[in-house]
Design a protein around this nucleic acid. Structure first.
Lengths: 241, 241
DNA sequence: AAAACACAATATGTATACATGGTGTTGACA
DNA sequence: TGTCAACACCATGTATACATATTGTGTTTT
């Protein structure tokens, strides 16, 4: 039951049903899931430990509100760990079957780009976006799985979960972006299979930094919009009334 | 109360009172701490999330048993994150007050070495060992704090906690080891203040890998001893009775 | 009219009671 | 005597009851 509560609450957070700064009532969740508060509390505790929720003693639990610096921190964490793994991969002799699967995951991005171009649309639809996210995540997962270290993989997965949930929803990608991502992935594969650690680390660092920049741009845009919507001026605004 | 239970259980693990593979009874802990099972369970949950305990559904909670590969994984995690931070430090302009404090922490190690040489003993006593651990931990903490990223610091601290608790107790350091550590720390400071990212990363990676090697040697020694003590031969041994 | 204090309602934190599953022991049967 | 089965006890997992703290609202006082 704790597991049911856990995945339910996580979905509620991801879907935006639970918003930051709004206290989460344990009783409400308990009624919705038709269970007592106990498993709810355990699930909340786990989510707090994973960094999705924030708890103040005697003051309840709220969804964390990630700021600009948090996004930077999360991407830096990813960069440090993935770059380390990429270097290790490039210095090891990897199993051909893994490399084949890795290449397939990269190709999937290009397939999506081709589909998108044929359809004539400017951006991926929801289903295609889901396929993209899955492929991209698997690509980076494979990068780290080949480096063996399970603990690193766990940390990176938690980091990516935070980014995916809280990083503002980007618009569906356009063909040019997909092409860039595919080329970067392919270049990384080349560098790793070619046993060039320096190149592999450089390429992966660039790749992740590009993602960070996109996320920050989306964040800045979103922050600007919400500031305007709430009539809260960004800095010194007009005094009204 | 959950906090009291948490620190109590953590101390019990660190002191070895709770041994791996021995089920932890919630009732016993509750009686010892004179509280109900509820806060105990919350504390256990937190320790599970931090990786100190392992939980099997309906089969209880046990202290994790780290193997050889786990030690390698933990040190790799530290290396990836600390090396990243060191590179970032070397590329930033750091506050002189931080650098001063950093240098002081490094000097503390040399002070300990001098004390040890004067005393004529071959290894640090318990109190000196505590001072060493504190200085060393603060040195690495400062390295990461200057790189700002709070999430990285949190992950590294949890990693170091696991290492400190489960890595087999090494014998107290001798003067030569202390001198080596001090020199490595100083060299790292020099590289960072000299804005030489490549050198800083190289030195820190070497430093951490040396620690890993020491830990592994201690682990292998310990495993060999316990195998003998239990009359369990390391590989193919004589069949008795 | 505004601020401060008091009281009530609600939510968290803790304790206890209950159900369910697993393990260990004992007894019976082969 | 060995093995299998049944029962009992104790563990975890869940529900509920209770205490305490915080917050909001209303009234009173300045």
């Amino acid at each position: 039951m704790r597991e049911r509560a856990y995945s339910y609450i996580q979905r509620q957070i991801a879907s935006g049903a639970l918003k930051p700064d709004v206290p989460i009532s344990e009783l409400v969740l308990a009624k919705e899931l038709k269970m007592s508060r106990t498993p709810i509390r355990e699930a909340l505790g786990q989510l707090v430990a994973e960094g999705l929720l924030d708890q103040s003693p005697n003051r309840g639990t709220v969804v964390v509100q990630l700021g600009r610096q948090d996004i930077i921190d999360l991407y830096e964490l990813r960069e440090a760990l993935e770059v380390y793994s990429a270097r290790k991969d490039a210095q090891s002799s990897l199993r051909p079957i893994d490399l084949q699967r890795w290449q397939d995951l990269s190709d999937e991005i290009r397939n999506l780009k081709n589909e998108l171009e044929k359809s004539g649309k400017v951006a991926l639809n929801a289903d295609q976006m889901h396929r993209f996210v899955t492929s991209d995540l698997s690509f980076h997962n494979m990068l780290m799985r080949m480096a063996v270290n399970g603990r690193m993989l766990k940390v990176v997965n938690e980091t990516r979960l935070l980014i995916r949930i809280f990083a503002i929803r980007r618009p569906g990608y356009n063909p040019a972006t997909l092409e860039r991502i595919h080329q970067q992935h392919d270049a990384i594969i080349q560098a790793v299979t070619g046993h060039d650690p320096e190149l592999a680390t450089q390429l992966l660092a660039d790749h992740i930094r590009t993602s960070l920049k996109e996320s920050l741009d989306a964040y800045d845009l979103w922050e600007q919009e919400t500031s305007l919507r709430k009539n809260i001026p960004t800095f010194f605004g007009p005094t009204h009334d």
